[in-house]
């Protein structure tokens, strides 16, 4: 119990602090590192809730894949040493106002709401169950979203290649040549 609470507060402290650092840091590579910490801490939360598989996916895909992708693109497009200019105070003020107001409204609503849990026994989430559910066509099966996601991933892959590809010499983009 206590251990759980300590763990939770540790993770949430990490998440809150590094979330805010992610969006305020003036060095881009550091921001990416902070994001990584946030994502790892979220994985810890999943572990805590006994969703080991999800935590593993979070670590490998999010922390491992996406953050690395982001760091690659930073290296491609930015100078690492460069510091961002500080945000205009007006813009920062208004954005902060909007965000705090939103957070305030959300938290008030959450506090007001009476959540009611079911009395049914919890289900043990193991790999066999996850695999069966993903590929099952039955009542608790997720074959359709699974297939949709697979098509989406394929499409995203193709789209990423097509979009990022340099315009070939046969069909030079006038604007590109002008700008470069």
């Amino acid at each position: 119990m206590i251990a759980n609470q300590i763990m939770f507060f540790l993770f949430s402290a990490v998440i809150i602090v590094f979330s805010i650092l992610t969006v305020t840091s003036r060095k881009i590579l550091r921001a990416a590192a902070y994001l990584l910490f946030v994502l790892v801490a979220s994985a810890g939360l999943y572990f805590m809730l006994n969703y080991q598989f999800l935590a593993a996916v979070q670590l490998t895909l999010y922390a491992g894949g996406i953050v690395v992708l982001i760091i690659f693109s930073i290296l491609l497009t930015s100078q690492i040493n460069q510091k961002f200019e500080p945000v205009e105070w007006k813009k920062a003020l208004f954005s902060a106002l909007a965000s705090i107001a939103g957070a305030f409204v959300t938290i008030i609503t959450i506090l007001d709401f009476k959540f009611s849990a079911t009395a049914e026994a919890a289900k043990e989430v193991n790999m066999r169950l996850v695999g069966n559910s993903l590929l099952s066509v039955g009542k608790n099966g997720y074959i359709l979203p699974f297939e949709v996601i697979s098509i989406l991933l394929l499409a995203a892959m193709v789209a990423a290649i097509v979009i990022a590809k340099k315009a070939g010499p046969k069909n030079p983009d006038p604007q590109t040549t002008k700008q470069e």
Partner: peptide, 23 residues
């Protein structure tokens, strides 16, 4: 909720597209 609105703040203030993506 706090994490979410931290992300929103970042989206609104950041100017670099990659940091926006991070948000």
């Amino acid at each position: 909720a706090i994490m979410f609105f931290a992300g929103v703040y970042g989206f609104l203030t950041r100017r670099n597209l990659i940091t926006i993506l991070m948000s």
